[in-house]
């Protein structure tokens, strides 16, 4: 797939917890360097499969049922920036932690951009139908353990080198698994919001009465 031209800097600043911080020239320079390096190193890949609903193996908990309500099919999806980004992050943590923090945040933004790009291509394959937003194992009461099932069904280890550890960490780290409902009628693309977010109890934005935009 195409590598994005740029990495959304405002998003990256959010990820660094920099809400309200004034950017300065040094930070801009640091972010420029990190952006270039990341764009050079990342090898984004994604996979998807359209599955019929209901499927007991995939519908675990109340939240996902609500999310996929009215959908007779869904898109099973995963994406990764690839192993080289993990290595880049490891090296940066030895050489320069400040740089590592910036790279880590930018990589998180990049994988989200990659997912959005994939969303668009998938939606283009489904004319006249509508996708709900991507819902990932770990949101709300949707068990994170399902990542293993997703990757097995998608044959992700073999096809794009994406695996999951025993404790449900995706490897490479900058990766996503998700499911999106396919609906015959337009769905409200509401925000995922705080309710499904695992950081809701610790989130700085939320404490300030703010929102991260997720």
């Amino acid at each position: 797939m195409n590598i994005p031209d740029r990495i959304d800097r405002r998003e990256a600043v959010r990820y660094m917890g920099g809400a309200g911080v004034m950017m300065n020239a040094d930070m801009e320079r640091l972010m420029d360097g990190c952006e270039q390096e990341l764009l050079r190193v990342m090898q984004p890949k994604y996979l998807y499969q359209i599955v019929d609903l209901p499927q007991e193996a995939l519908l675990v908990g109340g939240d996902i049922r609500r999310h996929l309500k009215g959908c007779r099919q869904a898109v099973l999806f995963c994406a990764t920036l690839g192993a080289a980004v993990d290595r880049l992050l490891r090296v940066a943590q030895v050489r320069d932690m400040a740089r590592a923090v910036v790279l880590d945040s930018m990589a998180s933004v990049a994988i989200e951009q990659v997912c959005r790009q994939a969303d668009e291509s998938i939606a283009a394959q489904l004319p006249g139908r509508f996708l709900t937003f991507r819902y990932s194992p770990g949101y709300g009461d949707y068990p994170i353990e399902l990542q293993k099932t997703f990757l097995r069904l998608l044959d992700a280890p073999r096809k794009i080198g994406l695996t999951v550890s025993d404790s449900c960490l995706l490897v490479p780290a900058k990766s996503v698994t998700a499911i999106a409902g396919i609906s015959d009628v337009p769905v409200e693309r509401q925000r995922r919001g705080c309710a499904v977010c695992n950081l809701r109890d610790t989130c700085q934005y939320r404490k300030n009465g703010d929102h991260c935009g997720f």
Binding site: V13, G18, M27, A98, R99
Partner: peptide
């Protein structure tokens, strides 16, 4: 006090 970024804190620490 949110006046500087985490990377800046780290740079100073380094």
């Amino acid at each position: 006090q949110n006046k500087i970024f985490l990377p800046q804190l780290i740079q100073s620490a380094n």
